[in-house]
Amino acid sequence: MVRAIAALVGAAFVFVLALALFGTVSDRIKTPPAETAAEWVQGRTEAATGTHLLNADLASAGVLGKYDRRQLQRGFQVYKEVCSACHSIRLVSFRDLADLGYKPPEVKAIANQWQIEQPSPNPDTGEAATRKNLPSDHFPLVFANDIAAKAANNNLVPPDLSDITKARHGGANYVYSLVGHGYVKQPAELLKEFPDIATPKGLYYNQYFASLNIGMPPPLKSDGQVQYTDGTKPTVDQMAKDIAAFLTWTAEPKLENRHAAGLAAMVFIAIFCFLAWGAYQNVWRDIKH
């Protein structure tokens, strides 16, 4: 009798879940969700160029991905020598570089020698002044404000790169595709079909950018632009992968911890399910069928 009641309750529960699922699916078919801005941008770009984002194939990709420290250091070198002239990483502090494998004296040297110093008004006069960076400081802003940024960049404000891989559809693959393989000659047949995207003066055609016309000149111009200290061949493709890896880290510095916690949670759930099944068998072992 008890088993019959339990089976009936279980069947009713399954029926309610199935009914709810059917209602959700039916509603989604009748009234599909509105297309997001990211989906619209991606769809328009692919329709116009026939291209899809390339796969950076980073070690950090996937549910069990881990950072390649050597690649992160190379990516930081690319940022320092190429990107830091225009783009800030204001959410990252110098001491965070220890996670990349730099030792405390190296972190201190990087902070002290950084080309931009910390704003520090004179305590006596209140006049603008600067001081050397400390490991505890965040990376200083490249430009004091948007007005200064526009004045130096053809009336455009270079975005902060701290969490760019989270802010852009495609993440690391977007950064890799954009800077490593996006700057190509605009196809003539493309202009015939989409005359509104002709690259205006002062902009650059990039097949992976949302509007296909970007204000940033090609940052990675040729192989060997950055001389890696670990002996890796600095091709444009390699530098693009490395900067994509570094910017993935700036956006998700605790990614490895998150992956480890997720794996531990899955193992715990599996063990819990096994124990629950064993308890069920033990409780019902003397019940006759």
Rank of each mutant, 00 (worst) to 15 (best):
136 S>E: 11
155 N>F: 07
40 W>P: 00
137 D>N: 06
1 M>G: 11
149 A>D: 09
202 G>M: 06
210 A>M: 03
67 Y>G: 08
222 S>Y: 05
40 W>I: 15
123 P>H: 03
92 V>N: 03
224 G>D: 06
145 N>E: 03
134 L>A: 14
44 R>D: 08
118 Q>A: 04
207 Q>H: 01
274 F>V: 15
173 N>L: 01
25 V>D: 08
3 R>N: 10
103 K>I: 03
60 S>I: 03
208 Y>V: 09
238 Q>K: 11
164 I>C: 02
277 W>S: 13
10 G>H: 05
104 P>I: 05
1 M>N: 09
212 L>P: 01
270 A>M: 11
192 K>P: 14
148 A>F: 05
48 A>L: 14
146 D>G: 02
151 A>C: 11
4 A>M: 08
222 S>V: 05
119 P>A: 01
268 F>Q: 10
86 C>N: 01
106 E>P: 08
259 H>P: 05
26 S>L: 11
264 A>D: 07
101 G>Y: 03
16 V>H: 08
129 A>S: 12
158 P>W: 10
15 F>Y: 12
60 S>H: 01
257 N>P: 00
135 P>T: 10
122 N>G: 11
124 D>S: 10
246 F>L: 04
37 A>L: 12
230 D>M: 05
57 D>I: 01
145 N>T: 06
67 Y>A: 03
171 G>N: 05
184 V>R: 03
44 R>Y: 11
1 M>A: 15
128 A>P: 11
272 F>P: 00
15 F>K: 13
39 E>Q: 14
244 A>M: 04
127 E>H: 07
88 S>I: 10
144 A>D: 13
238 Q>T: 14
275 L>A: 14
75 G>N: 07
107 V>F: 00
102 Y>Q: 08
136 S>F: 01
1 M>F: 04
99 D>P: 07
212 L>R: 10
